[in-house]
Amino acid sequence: MILATFPTLWLTLRQFAAGRATRVVAFFAATPIIFALVYLFNSGGTTANEFLGVVFNEFLAPTIVPLATLILATATLGNELSDRTVLYLVLKPIARWRIIVEKFIGACIVTGVAFIIGIFITWALVAFGPEMPKSAVLPAMIVSALFGVAAYGAVFLFFSLVIPRALLVGVIYILLWESLLARYIPGIRVLSIRHFMQSIFVHWINDPKVTIPQPTQMGSAIIVLVAVVIISLILASIRLRQMNLD
């Protein structure tokens, strides 16, 4: 069914099902579970909401979500460009934008599912603890993470088409820009995807103890992230159309 309707998406899912990159992403997505287990044994007086807020704002949003997404988003077309199997895709009567979109969706599905599972298990373990987190925390974490996966996925997919060592450049970008500069320098904050992910999260759970400096309104944050996705995919499509595939 998927093969007949979305052949590029089917190939992408097959590619990731057989790949080591997916196992690395699954490992990344599962790391909050370790923190939840530690929290179960020793909460240190932190509320469930506060704990999950710290996990999301200090761990998932600035580092884990972008790193995990980077791995699959750069691999989805980057691997095919490096081993030249991309020829089998582009020598077909299929628009370049469609190749890009299906590749993007494939990377987002695999990364997104990994984070949904990881976040749910983390939340479930915390819920077994001294207090139940607010009901809004689980959907807020999942939806915010998925917006992050989509935005980072589109940006890194574009990176993979314009930068030869996109994975390395992406890691430097994440560690230097998203995790360091955009975290501590107010002017740069609004130029990071992380900020808009966190803005969605903190507005959704609406807990004064779980916040970030100068959060953007939820609607604006969603618009910005959707715009990042659309612009990145358009640029990636243009780039793929203009590429010399030697």
Partner: peptide
């Protein structure tokens, strides 16, 4: 194409 690499997992 001349290149040999084809998706090995298919």
């Amino acid at each position: 194409p001349e290149q040999e690499t084809i998706y090995p997992y298919l």
